[in-house]
C-alpha cells in the first residue's frame, strides 16, 4: 500500500505516517537535555547548597583566624572544593549514566528508537558536561561574591579566578570521559574505583616522568614514560595555588590546555563508543 506523506506528516490516504527521523545532532541534544534534567531531578545540584554553606562559614571564621590571609585561603579553599565537588559529580554520576539506563531497562526502549549507541553515549556525555558547567558557574559566582563581600576582589583576581575555574572544567570533562569509558564496558563498582584511581594518579603523572629519569636501564624508563603518556596529566588543569596569589595561566597556556583536554575527550569518547558498540545487553 502506498502512503503519500504530506509536509505535515499526515498521510493523504488517512493512514498516520511515520514521523520523520530527527537528525543525529538533534537526537544527541535530546539525550543530553534529558540527562541534564535527570541530574537536576536527582538533586545533583544540591551540592551547591553545601558549597555555599562551606564558603560562607569559611569567610566568617577565616578572617579572624588566618592573620589577614583570608582572601588567599578562601580562594584556595573555594577552588579546591569546586574541583573536588565537580570531580565527585563527574565520577559518581558519570559511572551511572549507562548503568542506570540498563538497571531501569529504559536502554532497550531507547535503542528500539532510531538512536545509535554512539549518539546515546555522546548525548549522555554532553548532558553531564552541561550539568557540570552549571555547577561550576554557580560555584565560581559564589566564590566571587564571597571575595566581593570581604572586599578582596579586583578585576585581575576575578580574571585569574575564572581562568582557573575554566581549567577545572576542562579537567572535569576529561574525568567524565574516563567515567563513561569504564561504565561502557564494566560494572559500576569497577568503573567507580577505576575512575577514582585515574583521578588520583592523573594528578601524579608528572612524577612518573620524573621517576623515569632515575633509572639507567631503558626498559623501566620507557615503561614509566609510556605510563605517563597513557594517563591524562590532570595536574595540568590545577593552577589553584598560584591563583590564590593572583597569578593566573597565560592565554597560550589556556589554549594548549583546551587542546589537551579536547584531545583526551575525543580519545576517551571514541574508546567508550568502541567498547559500548561491542557490549551485549542480554
Amino acid at each position: 500500500m502506498h502512503t503519500l506523506t504530506t509536509t505535515h506528516g499526515v498521510a493523504a490516504a488517512g493512514i498516520p505516517a511515520a514521523r520523520p527521523v530527527p537528525s543525529s545532532r538533534r537526537r544527541i541534544v535530546a539525550i543530553a537535555r534529558n540527562t541534564f534534567r535527570e541530574a537536576v531531578r536527582d538533586r545533583v545540584l544540591y551540592n551547591l547548597v553545601l558549597f555555599v554553606l562551606l564558603l560562607s562559614v569559611g569567610a566568617v571564621f577565616l578572617g579572624a583566624a588566618s592573620a589577614s590571609q583570608d582572601a588567599k585561603i578562601i580562594v584556595d579553599f573555594g577552588l579546591t572544593a569546586t574541583l573536588l565537588f565537580g570531580a565527585l559529580i563527574a565520577i559518581f554520576v558519570g559511572v551511572g549514566l549507562v548503568w542506570k539506563e540498563m538497571e531501569r531497562r529504559t536502554l532497550y526502549a531507547i535503542f528500539a528508537k532510531p538512536v545509535g549507541r554512539t549518539e546515546f553515549l555522546l548525548g549522555k556525555y554532553l548532558g553531564l558536561c552541561v550539568t557540570l558547567a552549571v555547577n561550576l558557574v554557580v560555584m565560581g559566582a559564589g566564590l566571587t561574591l564571597v571575595l566581593l563581600s570581604i572586599r578582596a576582589l579586583s578585576t585581575a583576581l576575578a580574571l585569574v579566578l575564572w581562568s582557573t575555574v575554566a581549567l577545572i572544567y576542562l579537567e572535569l570533562t576529561v574525568l567524565t570521559g574516563v567515567a563513561l569509558l569504564f561504565s561502557a564496558f564494566s560494572s559500576p563498582v569497577f568503573a567507580l574505583f577505576a575512575s577514582l584511581a585515574v583521578f588520583l594518579i592523573g594528578h601524579f603523572t608528572a612524577d612518573l616522568k620524573a621517576l623515569a629519569t632515575l633509572f639507567d636501564a631503558a626498559a623501566p624508563r620507557a615503561a614509566l614514560v609510556a605510563l605517563h603518556h597513557a594517563l591524562p596529566n590532570l595536574s595540568t588543569f590545577v593552577v589553584i595555588t598560584p591563583a590564590a596569589h593572583g597569578v593566573g595561566p597565560s592565554a597560550d597556556y589556556m589554549v594548549t590546555a583546551l587542546a589537551y583536554a579536547v584531545a583526551w575527550d575525543v580519545a576517551l569518547l571514541a574508546a567508550a563508543a568502541l567498547a559500548f558498540a561491542r557490549r551485549d545487553f542480554k
Binding site: I73, D76, V238
Partner: peptide
C-alpha cells in the same frame, strides 16, 4: 609537596593556621 599534587596551597593554608 609530592603528596599534595596541585592542592599544595590549601595544605599550606592548613599548616599556616596551625602555626598561628
Amino acid at each position: 609537596r609530592r603528596l599534595t599534587a596541585g592542592f599544595g596551597g590549601l595544605v599550606a593554608d592548613w599548616y599556616w593556621l596551625t602555626t598561628l
